[in-house]
């Protein structure tokens, strides 16, 4: 196996006395689509916040493309190629749909900020390129009809899509999706599965997916890691995880050790 794109080595996050992520080892190869699941409070979102630099590891390390991420501010980690979405959607209250994508294009803007005052050719071309790219992305995800609407006015499912588009506008190599199916109805979940697969394919990405909905995780992931109480209790292909007694026990307690993932 070639060197992994993302590598967590014995990574640990503590809040006071609570160990939210406990000596977690996790490796993602280039182009993989991996699921991270576990019961509530298992440490999935904390693991995301660790990878994206919102939390620092108490011990252990996070490396991306061979580079240690220790001490990097969140925006630098985005610049290095890791983008994310949030479990509780975080859109900008005063920006339009288009501006959400434009603002995320700042990493690839070619004109310096002061050029906005001179408004020369370089500035206009840079602005046009950012806008064009933003419009392309919106069209690709069928959000172009909402181009100038305030983002908060979008239907819930579209807000989730917009968050993914905003993440893609930073041109990541690794995309972290934090419960993208939360709050979606069954029809929307089916569409989401197709969307994730398409993003994975067309944007040439590695994806790490935190998800509660088994239908989504089992449907798209090539490999699944299971967290419980901050520790990884299982890892493997979906069929193996589905039958793993440790996983079933973590989800439903010891007395329900029969097939549970069928609904």
């Amino acid at each position: 196996m070639p060197a992994p794109l993302l590598q967590l080595s014995r990574a640990t996050v503590r809040f006071g006395g609570l160990t939210a992520v406990d000596t977690l080892d996790l490796a993602l190869g280039e182009h993989e689509l991996v699921g991270l699941i576990g019961p509530n409070g298992a440490g999935k979102t904390t693991a995301f916040n660790l990878i994206t630099g919102l939390y620092a590891p108490a011990s252990g390390s996070v490396a991306f493309a061979g580079r240690d991420l220790a001490g990097l501010a969140p925006h630098r980690i985005v610049a290095a190629g890791i983008a994310r979405t949030f479990q509780n959607i975080r859109l900008f209250g005063s920006l339009s749909v288009l501006d959400h994508v434009r603002v995320a294009g700042n990493l690839h803007r070619t004109a310096a900020p002061w050029q906005a005052l001179v408004r020369g050719r370089a500035f206009r071309e840079s602005e046009a390129a950012v806008t064009r790219r933003a419009e392309e992305l919106l069209a690709l995800f069928h959000l172009d009809r909402f181009r100038d609407a305030p983002a908060r006015s979008l239907p819930y499912g579209e807000q989730r899509r917009l968050e993914i588009v905003r993440a893609l506008a930073t041109r990541p190599r690794l995309l972290l999706l934090d419960e993208p199916a939360a709050g979606l109805n069954p029809q929307e979940k089916i569409e989401l599965v197709a969307l994730i697969q398409r993003v994975h394919r067309e944007f040439d990405l590695t994806i790490l997916l935190v998800e509660h909905s088994m239908r989504v995780v089992m449907g798209v992931c090539q490999r699944i890691a299971v967290l419980d109480h901050g520790k990884k209790i299982a890892e493997g292909p979906p069929e193996a995880i589905r039958r793993d007694p440790a996983v079933i026990e973590a989800y439903l307690g010891p007395e329900h050790a029969t097939a549970v993932f069928h609904h």
Binding site: T52, L54, A73, P74, H75, V78, A79, A83, R84, F86, R90, L91, F92, G93, S94, L95, D99, H100, R102, V103, A104, N106, L107, R166, A167, A169, T170
Partner: peptide, 17 residues
């Protein structure tokens, strides 16, 4: 636009790079 994004939500702004 970054000024507005930072005002609206700092964490989301840093997630947008």
């Amino acid at each position: 636009l970054g000024f507005l994004a930072v005002r609206d939500d700092e964490i989301a702004a840093s997630a947008a790079g």
